[in-house]
């Protein structure tokens, strides 16, 4: 736990240095969220019965997605890890008395959390005081908030464990640019970054809900918005745990296999 805390502190002070960038980022994320909501509102005016969720739930989904963007999108890659594998710098990581998988997992999570904290809080504050139609409405019960937070942590872990598989694949392919691009875009789409999963066609939707992609941002955001309740909620969170364990095991397996055959060139 101590190394995690140290890493986290370093990353956090680091991000704090870029306050102007954080402000510009905040404006962007807010504007982007607002445009997305206005787009959905136009569809809603056309035919409210075509909406699989209530409008308020959709609004909550979008604001929370904007706020926790750095936590939940796949495409926030840690380029230094790719570079260290491609350049051979990974050898330094290997001689450290610290498990490499755990170390990377920690670094990635810490970076994502540090980035989020700076941006999420002001964005949520603004979203809470907007005019009623576009306002972020908090869940009515305290239990929902607790479940949301647990599910959010699980969600981050699934995202990081999934991205670890891509980092590890670099040991095998040596240039993961292609995989990174294709998997990143496909995964972000399938987990509901462009439109929430309830808006997908029914068959595809069911398939995604049982896949790892359904266990990413979909679950916490739908819990928060009040769309996911009761037995469905329990099932979704169990699926999150299942996929997390699955990805962790797969990641560790491929990592140890890769490390057995890794050859570091001198230099």
């Amino acid at each position: 736990m101590k190394p995690f805390a140290a890493l986290f502190r370093i990353r956090f002070t680091n991000s704090l240095q870029y306050r102007a960038a954080a402000l510009a980022g905040l404006v962007t994320q807010f504007g982007w969220g607002l445009m997305t909501i206005l787009g959905f509102a136009a569809f809603y005016r056309e035919n409210p019965t075509g909406f699989p969720m209530t409008f308020q739930q959709t609004v909550a989904y979008i604001w929370m997605q904007q706020a926790f963007m750095a936590l939940l999108f796949i495409w926030f890659w840690e380029n230094s890890i790719f570079e260290s594998i491609e350049s051979g710098g990974v050898a330094y990581d290997l001689v450290r008395p610290m498990d490499v998988y755990g170390r990377w997992f920690t670094t990635i999570s810490a970076n994502r959390i540090a980035r989020t904290v700076l941006r999420a809080v002001p964005l949520l504050v603004i979203a809470l005081i907007l005019p009623v139609a576009f306002r972020l409405v908090l869940p009515s019960s305290f239990i929902t908030v607790v479940l949301f937070i647990i599910s959010l942590i699980l969600s981050l872990s699934v995202v990081v464990a999934f991205s670890m598989l891509i980092y590890i694949s670099t040991f095998y392919t040596m240039n993961s640019k292609g995989i990174r691009i294709v998997v990143g875009i496909a995964a972000d789409f399938l987990m509901g970054s462009y439109i929430p999963i309830p808006f997908f066609p029914d068959t595809l939707r069911t398939m995604i809900e049982f896949s790892p992609f359904g266990a990413m941002k979909n679950t916490p955001l739908l819990i928060f918005s009040g769309y996911l309740t009761g037995a469905d909620l329990v099932q979704s969170m169990l699926l999150q745990i299942f996929w997390l364990l699955f990805m962790l095991l797969a990641g560790r397996f491929f990592m140890s296999r890769a490390l057995k055959r890794v050859v570091v060139q001198g230099g």
Binding site: F43, R45, E46, N47, G50, F51, P52, I195, F199, P201
Partner: peptide, 11 residues
């Protein structure tokens, strides 16, 4: 396309 599977038109 997914949105227009649910809606006929927008604005």
């Amino acid at each position: 396309n997914f949105m227009f599977a649910r809606f006929d038109s927008v604005g």
